[in-house]
Simulated scan of single mutants.
Amino acid sequence: MLLPWVLIAGAAAYGAGAGALLPRPAYRLSVEPDEAWREACPDGHPYADQGRVRAWLGPATCAERATRAGAHGSGRRAFAVPGALVCAGLAAAVGPRPELAVWLLMVPCGLLLSAVDRRVNRLPDVLTLPLAAGAAALLGLAALLPGAEGSWGRALGGGAVLAGAYFVLFVISPRAVGFGDVKLALALGVALGWYGWDVLFVGAFLGFLVGAVYGVALILTRRAGRGTALAFGPFMVLGALAGVALGGLAA
Results as ranks from 00 to 15, higher is better:
residue 6 V to N: 06
residue 8 I to S: 08
residue 9 A to C: 11
residue 11 A to C: 10
residue 13 A to N: 02
residue 18 A to E: 00
residue 35 E to L: 14
residue 41 C to D: 13
residue 42 P to N: 04
residue 42 P to Q: 08
residue 43 D to Y: 13
residue 44 G to H: 13
residue 45 H to T: 14
residue 50 Q to A: 15
residue 51 G to K: 06
residue 52 R to V: 15
residue 54 R to C: 11
residue 55 A to N: 04
residue 62 C to M: 08
residue 65 R to A: 14
residue 67 T to V: 11
residue 70 G to N: 11
residue 73 G to W: 11
residue 76 R to T: 08
residue 85 L to C: 11
residue 87 C to V: 04
residue 88 A to L: 06
residue 91 A to L: 05
residue 94 V to D: 05
residue 95 G to C: 07
residue 96 P to K: 09
residue 96 P to C: 10
residue 97 R to V: 08
residue 101 A to R: 01
residue 111 L to G: 07
residue 112 L to M: 01
residue 114 S to Q: 07
residue 118 R to Y: 13
residue 121 N to Q: 15
residue 121 N to V: 15
residue 124 P to R: 01
residue 127 L to N: 06
residue 141 L to W: 12
residue 148 A to P: 02
residue 150 G to S: 09
residue 153 G to S: 10
residue 153 G to L: 13
residue 157 G to D: 00
residue 164 G to V: 09
residue 171 V to P: 10
residue 178 G to C: 05
residue 181 D to T: 01
residue 190 V to R: 06
residue 195 Y to K: 09
residue 195 Y to F: 14
residue 195 Y to E: 10
residue 204 A to T: 12
residue 206 L to Q: 01
residue 211 G to C: 08
residue 216 V to R: 12
residue 224 A to V: 08
residue 225 G to L: 07
residue 235 F to V: 00
residue 240 A to Q: 00
residue 243 G to L: 01
residue 244 V to G: 02
residue 249 L to I: 15
residue 249 L to P: 04
